[in-house]
């Protein structure tokens, strides 16, 4: 057979593409449930990490069910929309951030265990230098004092912007406050140098200025949308 004829070449290419497409879509469909499950577990791990609870891939689900006693959705006006735990967990911040603030669904997770007591956990999401950054902020029930924070990123530069996912960076957020004494919302601001001892400022990552600015913006926008809700929980 002449493998160099035009007909043969066209046929060969078409059949090859069909076979490959079939194999790939079959695999993708088969593995999809498992992959989604992994993403869910990762999210649960991150939520627990905001309160400083370390979990492994294996026990994250159990710990989440045990410690997250409640989860709800509020709106920007501070009103309760839903108290369904599954629904609150399923809220996709990436989509929510694109719609109007008044229509946005804002999830709140309530954590409780014996060692740290009751805390609430708020998700945040914004832009870093190369891609999205996100995280979870755990707060005291007064709606003012931060208890802990965890951040993650898609592709910030290792050693520079990516440092936001390190505990050394995250632990400085403990005991920062979101409101001043008169009850005015003060977004956490970035400083160079040292911010320890300040209530409303945090240290930037050295060499990661763009990422740090993105983080500041994310805290302002994401936590800002919870302003009314936090005020009402005081």
């Amino acid at each position: 057979m002449n493998t160099n004829s035009n007909t043969y070449t066209f046929l060969y290419a078409s059949v090859m593409v069909l076979i490959v497409a079939a194999v790939l879509s079959f695999t993708a469909l088969q593995l999809k449930p498992r992959q989604n499950k992994n993403k869910e577990i990762e999210k649960k791990q991150a939520i627990l990490k905001a309160v400083g609870v370390a979990s492994t891939f294996a026990d994250a689900e159990k710990l989440y069910d045990q410690y997250i006693v409640e989860a709800k959705i509020v709106n920007a006006a501070g009103a309760l929309i839903s108290e369904d735990k599954e629904e609150a967990f399923g809220v996709d911040l990436k989509k929510e951030n694109k719609i109007d603030l008044t229509d946005r669904k804002l999830p709140v997770f309530i954590f409780q265990n014996e060692a740290v007591g009751k805390k609430m956990i708020l998700p945040v999401r914004g832009k870093g230098m190369w891609g999205p950054i996100w995280g979870y902020i755990s707060m005291e029930l007064d709606g003012n004092t931060i208890y802990g924070a965890t951040f993650d990123h898609q592709g910030e530069t290792p050693g520079l912007g990516a440092e936001i996912s390190k505990p050394e960076f995250q632990k400085q957020f403990a005991s920062k406050q979101l409101f001043d004494q008169s009850g005015k919302f003060i977004p956490l601001a970035l400083v160079k140098g040292t911010a320890s001892g300040h209530l409303h400022e945090f240290d930037a990552v050295s060499g990661g200025t763009v990422t740090s600015k993105g983080l500041e913006e994310m805290l302002l926008k994401s936590l800002g949308s919870y302003e009314k809700f936090l005020k009402s929980s005081k």
């Binding site: 993708a28 593995l31 498992r34 992959q35 992994n38 990762e42």
Partner: peptide, 11 residues
């Protein structure tokens, strides 16, 4: 294929 398998089994 490798990418999909890793995502499912070694996230």
């Amino acid at each position: 294929l490798v990418d999909q398998v890793l995502k499912a089994f070694a996230y």
